[in-house]
Simulated assay, not measured.
Amino acid sequence: MKFLRAIAIPIMPFYYLVTGFRNCLYDWGLKKSTFFNFPVICVGNLSVGGTGKTPMIEYLIRLLKDDYKIATLSRGYKRKTKGFLLANDHVSAEELGDEPFQFYNKFKGNIHVAVDGNRIHGINQLMVLNPRPEVFLLDDAYQHRRVKAGLNILLTSYDNLYVNDYVLPVGNLRESRRGANRADIIVVTKCPKHLDKDKKISVMEQINLKDNQRLFFSYIKYAQQAQSSSSYIKLEGLKPFTLVTGIANAHPLVKHLKEMGLDFEHLNFKDHYEFSSQDVKRFEALSSPIITTEKDYMRLKKYSTIADKLYYLPIEIGIDKTEVFNRMVLDYIKNN
């Protein structure tokens, strides 16, 4: 992989110029951004996957759902459908995409969940629903500049800050680091739970915030038990099991389980992996429990032959200066 990225170095300036020129067209008003006169919050990143967008969207849903009518809008990455689709009890993960499917299964009855590659069209479709959404959460839309969100939340991983990365294909950035200037809030995700002050200052100095930006640090809170749709098992003292992951960065989860002293085999697949019938047969042959992420569980739970051994580990995020973060979000909504 490193070799392929090394030989791709001559391509990087071309990619940098194309993405930079596109951003300039929006900055100069030569390409149109649509602004809506109601709260639109964008959660995204500069890099390709693995920064924790899904837990952040879920955090915002929990923060807002009791006081506002919420709609989430994603493009539905790797889904097998096109255009606008509103989640319902008859829609599958393959049709909706695994993350939106997860939002719907967890929060249905409280929010609208929709997918549309054209975010403007998706928002307009959601606006005619009854009840009409009051707050829109755009998932992974930081580069979708046709919509001008009122509040931009940019995520970057603690162990791979965007300031130390490069644009594709040499690095993992979708656009140059200057894209961070559009953010109102920057959240450093997947931090150690107890991050000391000096390390926070070091990160802040590297990021070099603009005057209008605020920086927060977040960490993953893992549940003490893995669960399925009908049962659960405690992790502490669990006998050898198999960990199955199809996410961009499984390292924090693997590290957490090892720190618990657990004995497991890790079957690691690429992000948004579509499990095949051969994979399922391999899982059927396992005598140990299978623990996976919630996102992967959404794709695997349809296979009845492994249902009795399949569990997922729920996660949430914790944010330092929680009250300040929450107040920024709530004040934005109140003022709009």
Score class of each variant (00 low, 15 high):
55 P>A: 09
55 P>I: 02
55 P>C: 04
55 P>Y: 12
55 P>F: 13
55 P>L: 05
55 P>N: 06
55 P>E: 05
56 M>I: 08
56 M>Y: 03
57 I>T: 02
57 I>S: 01
58 E>F: 15
58 E>T: 12
58 E>W: 14
58 E>S: 01
59 Y>V: 07
59 Y>F: 12
59 Y>L: 00
60 L>P: 02
61 I>P: 08
62 R>G: 11
62 R>E: 01
62 R>P: 08
64 L>V: 09
64 L>Q: 05
65 K>T: 00
66 D>V: 00
66 D>Y: 13
66 D>K: 13
66 D>A: 11
67 D>A: 00
67 D>G: 01
67 D>V: 11
67 D>W: 01
67 D>I: 06
68 Y>D: 04
68 Y>M: 02
68 Y>W: 13
68 Y>V: 06
69 K>W: 15
69 K>P: 01
70 I>L: 03
70 I>Y: 10
71 A>R: 07
72 T>V: 07
73 L>D: 07
73 L>E: 04
73 L>H: 06
74 S>W: 10
74 S>M: 08
75 R>K: 07
75 R>H: 04
75 R>S: 05
75 R>D: 11
76 G>K: 06
76 G>W: 12
76 G>L: 00
77 Y>M: 11
78 K>G: 09
78 K>I: 07
78 K>F: 03
78 K>W: 07
79 R>H: 09
79 R>Q: 00
79 R>S: 10
79 R>T: 09
79 R>Y: 13
80 K>T: 00
80 K>V: 07
80 K>D: 03
80 K>G: 06
81 T>L: 10
81 T>Y: 10
81 T>N: 08
81 T>K: 14
81 T>S: 13
82 K>I: 04
83 G>S: 11
83 G>K: 12
83 G>M: 13
83 G>C: 06
84 F>G: 08
84 F>I: 03
85 L>C: 10
85 L>I: 04
86 L>Y: 11
86 L>W: 12
86 L>N: 01
87 A>H: 05
89 D>P: 06
89 D>R: 15
90 H>M: 14
91 V>N: 09
92 S>P: 02
92 S>T: 14
92 S>H: 09
93 A>H: 12
93 A>V: 01
93 A>M: 10
94 E>T: 09
94 E>C: 09
95 E>P: 02
95 E>M: 15
97 G>S: 05
97 G>N: 08
98 D>K: 03
98 D>Q: 07
98 D>L: 03
100 P>A: 14
100 P>N: 02
101 F>Y: 15
101 F>A: 04
101 F>Q: 10
101 F>H: 12
101 F>G: 04
101 F>I: 02
102 Q>N: 06
102 Q>R: 11
102 Q>V: 01
